[in-house]
Computed example of a mutant assay.
Amino acid sequence: MKIIDAQIHIWTQTVTPPSGLHRKVPKYTAEEALKEMDEAGVDAALIHPPYSWDPDSNAYAVESAKKYPDRFAVMGQFPLDDPESRKRIVGWRNQPGMMGLRWALLYPDQQKALHEGKLDWVWPAAEKEGLPVATMAGLFLPQFRKIAEAHPQLKLIIDHCGLLRLEKDAAAFGKLDELCALARLPNVAVKATGAPGYSTQPYPFRNLHDGLHRIFDAYGPKRFFWGTDITRMPCTWRQCVTMFTEELPWLKGNDLEQVMGRGLCEWIGWNYNFD
């Protein structure tokens, strides 16, 4: 079974320290990631450039995907407040390894722009270009629903299980009903990334399993993507893998293959060789 991580960050410089619980290191290179991936049995990974702390990370991600085409692809980004960005979205996938777009929309100014409609141009433009878009929609599920309903041909991905970013354990699943209700929209998928970071328990983080099962049941194996966000995980990459491959009795067979990589590749159009 091929295992493909739905989200990692790599970077070569920092203007500001990496955000949140990410490793406080000046760089985390493609080669460092590949070493850890090989040790963990991870075949490939989808890079999300951490633009907020390394403005050159998008170019570095593309360079890495070009250098290691069988190991990396990219969900890139560009500055949303730059008028020139409206031109950049045309032909975006012509870059090596580029699959789509991802903005966390985490910071207050981004949230303000979202709710004021200043980002309304992005969704139809991405829909027209056939670009999947990932975001931390758990921060703004009602607004996210409106976007998904208004653009049914736009493939959207909810980051980090749609959990509440600053909560732990049961509290992290505070919007679980609303998240699962979004599964009725066929253009919405969920990245099951970063799950161990939401638990105060040790591996295998059993207090998360029921919530993950509910999300899986709602979205199904082709819209529920395993991944790590490894540079902020409280456990090893291998443990992130085995939490899903060995500790979830309801995730087996073809469903497991879909969750661990096939579903992601089909959703974003990554023509990965599974043979």
Rank of each mutant, 00 (worst) to 15 (best):
Asp5Trp: 11
Gln7Gly: 10
His9Cys: 11
Gln13Tyr: 02
Val15Gln: 13
Pro17Leu: 13
Ser19Lys: 08
Leu21Ser: 14
Leu21Lys: 14
Arg23Glu: 11
Lys27Ala: 15
Ala33Phe: 08
Lys35Asp: 12
Lys35Thr: 14
Lys35Ser: 14
Glu36Ile: 02
Met37Gly: 05
Ala40Pro: 11
Ala40Ile: 08
Gly41Gln: 11
Asn58Gln: 14
Glu63Arg: 15
Ser64Ala: 15
Asp82Arg: 09
Lys87Arg: 14
Ile89Lys: 03
Trp92Cys: 02
Trp92Pro: 05
Gln95Met: 13
Gly97Thr: 05
Met98Gly: 05
Arg102Trp: 06
Ala104Tyr: 01
Pro108Asn: 04
Gln111Val: 12
Ala113Ile: 00
His115Trp: 09
Ala126Arg: 00
Met136Lys: 13
Met136Cys: 13
Ala137Cys: 14
Gln143Lys: 12
Ile147Trp: 05
Ala148Gln: 00
Ile157Ala: 02
Ile158Gly: 04
His160Trp: 02
His160Ser: 03
Gly162Gln: 03
Arg165Cys: 10
Arg165Leu: 15
Glu167Leu: 12
Lys168Glu: 01
Gly174Phe: 07
Leu176Asp: 00
Asp177Leu: 06
Glu178Asp: 12
Arg184Lys: 15
Val188Arg: 02
Ala189Trp: 04
Ala192Arg: 05
Gly194Asn: 04
Pro202Lys: 00
Pro204Leu: 08
His209Pro: 09
Asp210Leu: 14
Asp217Pro: 05
Asp217Trp: 04
Ala218Trp: 06
Gly220Asn: 08
Thr231His: 10
Cys235Arg: 02
Cys240Phe: 05
Cys240Met: 12
Thr242Pro: 10
Glu246Thr: 05
Glu247Leu: 03
Leu248Glu: 01
Trp250Phe: 14
Gly253Arg: 05
Gly253Ala: 05
Arg262Glu: 09
Gly263Ile: 09
Ile268Phe: 02
Tyr272Val: 06
Phe274His: 08
Asp275Leu: 12
